[in-house]
């Protein structure tokens, strides 16, 4: 039966075990594939946003004269213009700019933690992980404030005619936003806002939990005992991914 034998190239030695496919460790490889599948999930959200947005009429006219209506898609810079402690001031996109800054800076401190892990520098890893953790919690707090403001709405609200959840056509002043109606634009606008930023915020929350885990384990010396800081690297990949998604959410939701 020698004719059916399979020739194995002894140089590769893949049957002996102990080798790493794609020259990446198991954990990092699986993290990359998880991130790829997560990219598809977020991609689906953003594709949905693009398709629904293009299927609604755009606002025609100068941005300064913009008035909210459920007849056309709103201009983001006229909607997201609130800032904590500056009630009633028109500060377009300032708060979301601050949130972007916080998230990018937390990504920078994360990459510094990964770099310190390569150098086996426990003190630096702990220090930079703590900064990253702070950045993540600050970002989440900002998002909580933004959601609260979005849900409660402006002082004046908007007069809208719409079909309510009891299937009646009503005309009334609407304040804030929910999944049925919102004062900013068509119902789909608030629905997409809640789903896209909510799903991203959920990822940030998981990231903060993972960062705390890494921070704790690094601080008590578990990674030093283990002999490497690969866990910091894997959580770092996840955290950069969260930042990457925010870059796209920022462009598609707040700029376009």
């Amino acid at each position: 039966m020698s004719s059916t034998a399979i020739q194995v190239n002894s140089k590769r030695g893949i049957w002996g075990g102990g080798n790493e496919p794609l020259k990446a460790s198991y954990g990092k490889l699986m993290m990359w594939f998880f991130l790829l599948s997560d990219i598809f999930t977020f991609g689906a959200f953003l594709i949905t946003y693009g398709a629904i947005r293009m299927s609604y009429p755009a606002y025609e006219g100068a941005a300064a004269d913009f008035v909210s209506s459920n007849e056309y898609w709103p201009i983001p810079e006229r909607i997201f213009d609130a800032f904590p402690f500056f009630h009633g001031a028109h500060l377009p996109l300032v708060f979301v700019g601050l949130m972007t800054f916080i998230l990018i800076m937390s990504s920078v401190t994360m990459v510094l933690a990964v770099e310190a892990g390569h150098r086996n520098d426990k003190n630096d890893v702990v220090k930079w992980l703590l900064w990253t953790l702070l950045g993540g919690i600050t970002f989440l707090s900002c998002q909580a404030w933004e959601w609260t403001h979005f849900i409660h709405g402006t002082d004046d609200g908007t007069m809208l005619t719409y079909i309510n959840s009891f299937n009646n056509i009503v005309t009334e002043t609407v304040y804030g936003a929910n999944l049925v109606v919102n004062e900013y634009g068509p119902p789909a606008f608030a629905q997409l806002f809640f789903f896209i930023t909510g799903f991203h915020g959920f990822h940030v929350t998981i990231g903060v939990v993972l960062l705390f885990l890494a921070f704790y384990q690094a601080a008590v010396g578990i990674y030093q005992q283990r002999g490497h800081y690969e866990m910091v690297e894997k959580i770092g990949l996840y955290w950069h991914f969260v930042d990457l998604v925010w870059v796209f959410v920022f462009t598609f939701f707040y700029l376009i």
Binding site: G43, I47, A51, M54, S55
Partner: peptide
Amino acid sequence: VPLIFLVWLIIALMKEGADIF
């Protein structure tokens, strides 16, 4: 490579949305 297909899908479905409009 999957990301390149994703970019195409975004463009295709924005066109589709414009046609629905």
